Simulated scan of single mutants.
Amino acid sequence: MGRAPAGPQRQRGQVLLLLLLVLVTGAAYLLMQSLSAASIATERDRITQQALAEAKAALIAYAVTYSETHPGSAPGYLPCPDMSAGGVSGEGSAEGSCGAKDVSVIGRLPWKTLGLPPLRDGAGECLWYTLSGAYKNNPKTNLMNSNTSGQFEVMGPNGTTYVAGPEPESRAVAVVFAPGMPIAGQARGSVGAATQCGGNYIAANYLDTDKEIDNSALSPGAKAVTRFIAGAPSRSFNDRLLAIRHDELFTAINKKVAAAIRGSVDPPSGIQGYYAQQVPKQYPWAGDGSGHQIPGETAGPLPYEDLPLDPGTKNVLQDNGWFDPDVTVYTVSPDRSRATITIQNPAVSVCLEKGKIVPCP
C-alpha cells in the first residue's frame, strides 16, 4: 500500500522550517554586511589617524630644525600652507608668503615642502592645515620664543571642553585636518591645478561646522584667536583633526635652546665653556639683565655677554628674546660649582656640576 499524503500539520512544520532557514540566512547576511561595513570604517579611521600623525610629526620636526635649515632664524617657524598649487614647486609646496604678519592662514598641507608624499585620509582626500599667524615663516612675527602664543583653541565634541587652550601656553600653533567625504553643500570639483590631490582650494568645501563652530573660518586680525571643533561624526560633520599645541612644540624647542646655552667643555662654548676656561674652574654669576654678571648674584638673568657662545647663535637668541628673564632663568650655587639653566613655558631645565651634566633635583 502507498504512503498516506502528509497531513496539514506536517506541511505547516515544513513551511516553518523553510521560513526559519530564510530568516537565519538573512540575519547572517545582514551580520556579515554590518561586520564588513565596520571593518571598512575601522580601516578608514586607521588610515586617517596615521596620515594626521605623520603630518604632525613632520611639522614639529620642521619647526624644531628651522634654525638649522634657515641660518639666522630662530627655531619655531612653520611653512605657509599650499593655498593655490602655485607655490615655488607647484602643488604640495608652501606659498612663499602668506598674508599679513601675525594673521592666521588656512590651506592644504604643504606635503612636498615637508618631504612627504601627498598624505590622504581614509576617504582619499588630501589633508588641510591651519597655521597661527605668529608662526608663519613669511612674514615673520617680531619675536619667536617660548612666550610666542598659539592662536587656536580646539574644542571637544560637546563644544565646551578644551582639547587645546584656553591658556596661551596650551593653545595650538597649528592644526591638521582630514576632511573626509563631502557632506551636503560641499562642491569639490577640480580647478585643474591640483593634479595630485584634485579638487579645489575653498576651505568650506572640505571643512565642516558643528556647535556653530566653523572649521573653515579664521578670525581676522593680527594675533586673533580662532576656535575649531573636534566634533562627533554625523551626516553633517566628518572632520578629523590633530592639533600641535604650544607646549608640545616648545618642549622640544626649549631642550634645543637649553643645550645651546649649556654648550660644552671641549670645545669650550656656553656655560660649560665658561667653566672650563676659568682658573679656578667655576660657573658665572647671574646677570644684570644686560648680559653681564653681577658678582655675588646667584639667581637672575643669564650673563650671555660673558659666555663663549657662537656669535650667530647668540644674535638669533638675543634678537628673539630668548635671554629675557621671563624666558630664561639662571641660578648658580654660592661656591659656583653648580649651575642651572631653565627655559620657561614649558619649563625645561639643565643642571650642571663641576663641568658635568647632572640630574636636576
Rank of each mutant, 00 (worst) to 15 (best):
L19Q: 05
A134Q: 14
V64I: 03
H246V: 14
L249K: 00
S190A: 14
L218R: 01
F237M: 05
G289T: 07
N200S: 11
P8H: 03
A184P: 12
D319A: 15
T65N: 14
L17Q: 08
N158M: 08
T331M: 03
E169N: 13
G289W: 08
N145V: 02
V327R: 09
Q9Y: 01
R3A: 14
L307D: 08
Y77P: 13
I229R: 09
Q196N: 10
P268Y: 00
Q50A: 13
S264Q: 13
T130H: 04
L19R: 05
A51W: 00
S73R: 11
I40G: 07
L207Y: 06
L31R: 12
P311Q: 05
S236P: 07
G99N: 08
Y206P: 12
A204W: 04
L59P: 12
A74K: 05
A203F: 02
A259Q: 09
T161A: 10
T340K: 15
L23G: 15
H70W: 02
A28D: 03
L23M: 15
K354A: 11
P267N: 08
Q196D: 11
S349I: 06
G13T: 04
V327S: 09
T195K: 07
C80A: 07
V279M: 03
R171D: 01
G133R: 05
A252D: 08
D208E: 09
K101I: 14
A224W: 09
I244C: 02
V329T: 13
L18F: 15
G76K: 09
K281F: 01
Y77D: 06
Q9L: 08
T141Q: 06
Q278M: 07
L317Y: 10
G76F: 07
E169K: 15
W322L: 05
D319S: 15
S132P: 05
D82Y: 08
T195R: 04
W322Q: 05
C126D: 10
T48L: 10
S97C: 01
Q196A: 12
Y274M: 01
A193L: 15
N147G: 14
L242W: 00
N320Y: 08
A74F: 06
I341C: 11
T160Y: 09
S234H: 09
A194W: 02
G87S: 13
A194V: 02
K281P: 10
F237P: 14
Q196S: 14
V154P: 10
P117W: 00
Y201E: 13
Y201T: 15
V225G: 03
H70C: 04
V316A: 10
L31P: 06
Y66W: 11
K314I: 00
P295M: 00
T148H: 04
Q151S: 07
G156I: 00
Y129P: 09
D326T: 13
G221K: 13
L114Y: 01
Y129L: 01
N200V: 07
A53Y: 09
P5F: 00
E68C: 00
K314R: 10
E68M: 00
E248F: 02
A222K: 06
A4F: 01
T298I: 15
D310C: 09
N200Q: 05
K255E: 11
T313W: 03
S104R: 12
A38G: 06
Y275L: 04
S84P: 15
A134S: 15
E297Q: 14
S84W: 10
E153D: 12
P118A: 05
N345L: 04
D247A: 01
A100M: 10
N142S: 13
C80M: 07
G291C: 07
